[in-house]
Amino acid sequence: MLSEFAFVGVLIVFASLLPIAGLGFAWLVRPKKPNPIKKSTYECGLETIGGTWVQFRAQYYIFALMFVVFDVEAVFLLPWAVAYDQLPAYALIEAVIFIAILALALVYAWRKDALRWS
């Protein structure tokens, strides 16, 4: 009994050989003449002022949050969608309730302006 993922395993090995081969070959043929100016951080030729860790807006986090919630809901909807033809009619109602609660989350975020990029 061989897992259906066996091919994915073989492919991972080969897929990681591709960048290794590419980078390795480039390492052989490319010029290597580093100097401090080349290795400085790119900022239109000027040195970076202050640290890289400027304060980011929590807005980014809210989008990631919405994504996590919808992703989990999608994972629970997929078995429903696969089994849908074998399920009795009330499965539609169950799923509609599920999706309605999901839509409620979207409406809440929308009303609270959490989705606005200001």
Partner: peptide, 17 residues
């Protein structure tokens, strides 16, 4: 296991917030 994954997601979302 599916429910645990779902709850872990909710936990991470609220905890990190």
């Amino acid at each position: 296991a599916m429910f645990v994954i779902g709850i872990a997601a909710a936990e991470a979302a609220a905890g990190l917030a």
